Simulated scan of single mutants.
Amino acid sequence: MSQNSLGNAMLHAKCPKCRTGNMFNVPVYSFRKLSEVRHHCDHCGANLHPEPDFYYGALYISYAFSVALFVNVMIILNIFFNDPDLWVYIVTVVVANVILLPFMQRYSKVLYLYGLGKLKYNPNQS
């Protein structure tokens, strides 16, 4: 996979226009300013906030991630642990959501910006 491929850029949360600059100021497990997106790309200067409150739509993607996690945890517990007690379901889902919350918030914003941000890749920017 090349360094500027779409998948690699999305995985590493890079700017959609140059695929080099970072979208976030802090690492994924830094709970301080966890989901704060830079206003401009530090490499090409692209505006990463196309309009005010743009990232509110990413809440729908984050919700879908959370539902998918819930369903997968339920299926895994039913198959491998032979239908455990209710408290096991609740604790497992809560713990999995807390552990994966930084990833779900961050990648929901990445997917939303790449899908609806109207920033097209320009190889000359990198």
Rank of each mutant, 00 (worst) to 15 (best):
L11Y: 03
M10A: 08
Y56M: 08
N97G: 11
A9V: 03
C44R: 01
V93K: 13
I79N: 08
L100N: 12
P84W: 10
C15D: 01
V67D: 06
Y114K: 13
T20W: 00
P16T: 06
V95Y: 08
W87I: 15
S62N: 12
L113Y: 08
N122M: 09
V73K: 05
N4W: 02
P123N: 07
N4P: 01
M10E: 03
R32Y: 10
D85R: 13
W87N: 14
S35C: 08
N22I: 00
S108A: 15
F103D: 11
N8W: 06
P102L: 13
P52A: 06
N124E: 15
A13V: 00
N25T: 04
L59F: 05
A68F: 05
G45F: 02
Y63I: 03
D53P: 04
Y112P: 05
F24R: 08
P84C: 13
K17I: 00
E51L: 05
Y55L: 06
Y114E: 11
N82M: 10
L11H: 02
Y56R: 07
K120L: 14
A58Q: 04
N97P: 04
G57R: 04
L48H: 02
F24A: 10
W87F: 15
P102V: 11
F54N: 03
F54V: 03
P102C: 13
F103M: 15
V110K: 10
A64K: 01
I61Y: 05
V28G: 13
K109S: 03
N47S: 04
P27M: 06
K33F: 10
S5A: 11
N47P: 01
Y29S: 07
L119P: 00
V110F: 08
F81E: 06
L119D: 01
V95L: 15
G117W: 07
G117Y: 09
L86C: 07
L69T: 09
Y60Q: 04
C41K: 00
K118L: 07
N82S: 12
K14Y: 03
V28N: 11
R32A: 12
C41G: 03
K14P: 00
I61V: 09
L100W: 12
N72M: 13
S35T: 06
L6T: 07
Y89H: 15
A13M: 00
R32I: 11
V95D: 07
L6I: 08
L77D: 10
L77F: 12
A46W: 02
F65M: 13
H40V: 02
S66P: 04
T20L: 03
P52D: 05
C18Y: 00
N97K: 11
A9K: 02
C15P: 00
V26Q: 12
Y107I: 12
S35L: 10
Q3R: 08
K17P: 02
G7A: 10
